[in-house]
Amino acid sequence: MPILEVNNLRLAFGGLQVLDDVSFTVNEGEIYAIIGPNGAGKTSILNCLGGFYRQQAGDIIFTGNDISSLSPDRRAALGLARTFQNIALFHGMTVLDNIKLGSHAHLKSGLLDTLLYWGRAHREEMKLREEIEREIIDFLEIEHIRKQPVSTLAYGLQKRVELARALAMRPKILLLDEPVAGMNAEETEDMVRFILDIQEERDLTIVIIEHDMRMIMDISDRIMVLNFGCKIAEGTPGEIQKHPEVLKAYLGEKRKHG
């Protein structure tokens, strides 16, 4: 059953065509990967899904509703969560506050509750803290750093905190932009384990962009290949590895250089 449908997406900056008529469907519970050479438009797709870029044409259907005209914050509230290629944590806050911020849209307390901090706001914050501790901090094994300012953390841990923050958004779909880029082998292995656990234990749908081919072939259910803003192939890892267009545009290019 499809959770996300993207139809005929077009995006251009001035004369530069970034996405050209891209359509794809992501099914509930699967890991869907988007791959392609640098500048193929992978991150632009995520930016359109999140609402940061506005496409010139095409629509985005999420859980049956057209979200194309919604603002980014509304889309987040509906259950679209993402991580970023260049980590985008809030540097003025601790790990815990960064994660709590992810739950923003699900909290109810208003201005007055907040200022007085009794009754609803207090109960809500306590409940949030317990949930985050139980379901996220514990799960991602970041208890030891919860009170640290994020700017003091190592790169791999920052990526993990970003994942934690995305989980706190209680997403229906998780968009991961190069979750293991720049990580060493051990960190990559940890991250892959977390991603697989998330998908299995929480029935989450995951869209992932990554350059690490071995990892992509290992974990994805289906893969879409982009080149110069066009979709050139889609299929299971096995199909993609044999696809002539892909070999030409992507893997072939690699082989030449290698």
């Binding site: 940061f52 914050d73 809030f90 003025g92 307390s109 907040t114």
Partner: peptide, 28 residues
């Protein structure tokens, strides 16, 4: 009190990175 709750966190998020704050569900 403000900075113990979601409102204060939203403020700081806007200061630190307004774009990703919006993608996290904050109405800027």
């Amino acid at each position: 009190n403000l900075f113990r709750t979601r409102m204060g966190r939203a403020f700081i998020a806007i200061r630190d990175r307004d774009i990703s704050a919006e993608l996290m569900g904050i109405n800027l």
